[in-house]
Simulated assay, not measured.
Amino acid sequence: MKNIILCITLLLTSTAVAGGGSTVPSGTTIAGVVSNDPNFSTLLAAVQAAGLVETLSGPGPFTVFAPTNAAFAKIPQADLDALLNDREKLRAVLLYHVVPGRVTAAQVMNLTTAKTVNGANVNVSMMGSSVMINDSTVTQADIRASNGVIHVIDTVLMP
């Protein structure tokens, strides 16, 4: 766990130092999958604004709870604009959506909490047949990426 956090810290630091992270990702990494799906255009813009493209293109593995455009649309526009313009807060919110390791839907259903890359825990529960991450519902699970797995959620998670 310490090695994963150290690796992510190094990736974040190198992205910030290099001034990178605003490029459009490609390939089968988590960042590439997100960039190729129009339902994630707001998430992609947020990842780019936060300078996290290289991180989510890195070796991982990561599990990402990925909010759709509709999830971001639930946030009042003024609040979303403020978030997108506050790089540190945006990074904290986005890293709250990332769990170290490749955690499949079958594994998620056996958890009650999961520690995110930003250090805070998310709550995992079942509501009927739906998996809930905090107050967000997983609407699609186990989208494979070369460096992890994506689970689509319907609400942006706030730490």
Results as ranks from 00 to 15, higher is better:
residue 34 V to C: 00
residue 37 D to N: 15
residue 42 T to V: 15
residue 48 Q to E: 12
residue 50 A to D: 08
residue 50 A to T: 02
residue 51 G to S: 10
residue 51 G to K: 01
residue 51 G to F: 01
residue 52 L to E: 00
residue 53 V to N: 02
residue 53 V to A: 08
residue 58 G to N: 12
residue 59 P to M: 09
residue 60 G to W: 00
residue 62 F to E: 08
residue 66 A to D: 06
residue 66 A to F: 03
residue 67 P to Y: 07
residue 73 A to G: 05
residue 73 A to W: 04
residue 73 A to Y: 05
residue 73 A to L: 07
residue 74 K to V: 03
residue 74 K to Y: 03
residue 76 P to T: 08
residue 77 Q to I: 12
residue 77 Q to M: 06
residue 77 Q to T: 13
residue 77 Q to V: 14
residue 80 L to I: 07
residue 82 A to L: 05
residue 87 R to K: 15
residue 88 E to P: 00
residue 88 E to K: 13
residue 89 K to C: 03
residue 90 L to E: 08
residue 90 L to N: 11
residue 91 R to L: 07
residue 92 A to I: 07
residue 93 V to A: 12
residue 95 L to N: 04
residue 99 V to T: 02
residue 101 G to H: 06
residue 102 R to S: 11
residue 104 T to A: 10
residue 104 T to P: 02
residue 104 T to K: 05
residue 106 A to G: 13
residue 106 A to T: 13
residue 108 V to T: 09
residue 114 A to T: 11
residue 116 T to S: 07
residue 117 V to G: 03
residue 118 N to Q: 14
residue 119 G to E: 11
residue 120 A to Q: 14
residue 125 S to Y: 06
residue 126 M to T: 14
residue 129 S to A: 14
residue 130 S to I: 10
residue 131 V to W: 07
residue 132 M to G: 10
residue 134 N to V: 11
residue 136 S to L: 10
residue 137 T to V: 14
residue 138 V to Y: 04
residue 139 T to E: 06
residue 145 A to R: 00
residue 148 G to V: 01
residue 149 V to C: 09
residue 154 D to F: 10
residue 156 V to F: 07
residue 157 L to V: 15
